[in-house]
């Protein structure tokens, strides 16, 4: 498939869109909201003869491994698979329930245990559900900051749904707007260009980016110091 915007190649399998849902009930409105955004993105893509493949990470299933990872730095097998899925994602829909004026602890904790550089440049739609419209700014005030720290590319439209919004056609309109933004961001190939052409401009640690960041630069000051040289800046004495 050819990218309609600039002609660069996209993966033969289409765009990989990953839903991360912090919903805890089954069925969950948080998951439902994310699914609707994902479906709408896929439908819009279909209209433009593009394909979107959606996979879902339900954080409820990872709750025990996330809490273990918070205290031990050890990623369990399910969490390891989730990291691999996100690493391969072309776009992410991150959907959280809002409790106590903040995205749920489960949702935030999941992103806290990821490597800082795992999601660099990836387009993200922020979504949240709450029991009251008074939580509406949580998405832009808190979630957007978290994803800015992770250096993702958050779409301008966030989708917030309080209980009453489910009765309103306006929610559907916002979902459509966000889905279109996601599609355009996917088509732009932004994250791939960052990864292919500018990745080393970002800070990485050995073994970061989900264990893929394994390049070692032997030409640094520290490497000179490691091999008996001096790390002093040249010119100082």
């Amino acid at each position: 498939m050819t990218n309609p915007i600039d002609g660069t190649e996209t993966p033969a399998t289409g765009f990989r869109l990953v839903v991360v849902s912090g919903g805890t009930s089954d069925p969950s409105s948080t998951r439902l909201l994310a699914d609707r955004i994902a479906e709408r993105t896929a439908r819009l893509a279909g209209e433009r003869a593009e394909q979107v493949h959606v996979s879902t990470i339900d954080l409820r299933d990872l709750a025990a491994e996330i809490s273990s990872a918070l205290v031990s730095q050890l990623l369990g097998p399910k969490l390891t698979r989730a990291v691999a899925t996100l690493r391969e994602a072309d776009g992410i829909i991150a959907s959280a329930p809002v409790y106590k004026a903040a995205p749920s602890g489960l949702f935030s904790s999941f992103f806290h245990v990821l490597d800082n550089d795992l999601l660099i440049g990836k387009p993200v739609i922020l979504a949240a559900t709450a029991g009251t419209a008074r939580h509406a700014l949580v998405v832009d005030n808190e979630m957007r900051a978290l994803f800015a720290y992770l250096r993702t590319l958050t779409a301008p439209t966030a989708v917030f749904a309080a209980s009453e919004d489910w009765n309103s056609g306006e929610l559907g309109a916002r979902i459509g707007r966000a889905a279109f933004e996601m599609l355009v961001l996917l088509e732009s190939g932004f994250s791939h260009k960052i990864e292919n052409e500018s990745w080393q401009r970002y800070q990485h640690e050995y073994g970061s980016a989900g264990g893929t960041e394994l390049g070692i630069d032997l030409g640094t000051d520290l490497m000179r110091l490691a091999t008996g040289g001096s790390a002093r800046p040249t010119g100082s004495s």
């Binding site: 491994e65 809490s67 273990s68 990872a69 918070l70 205290v71 031990s72 050890l74 369990g76 097998p77």
Partner: peptide, 16 residues
């Protein structure tokens, strides 16, 4: 210390 109250003994034994 370090890993207590985290992963189960079984999981930790499998992963480490």
């Amino acid at each position: 210390p370090v890993y207590g109250h985290g992963p189960s003994l079984e999981d930790f034994s499998q992963m480490t």
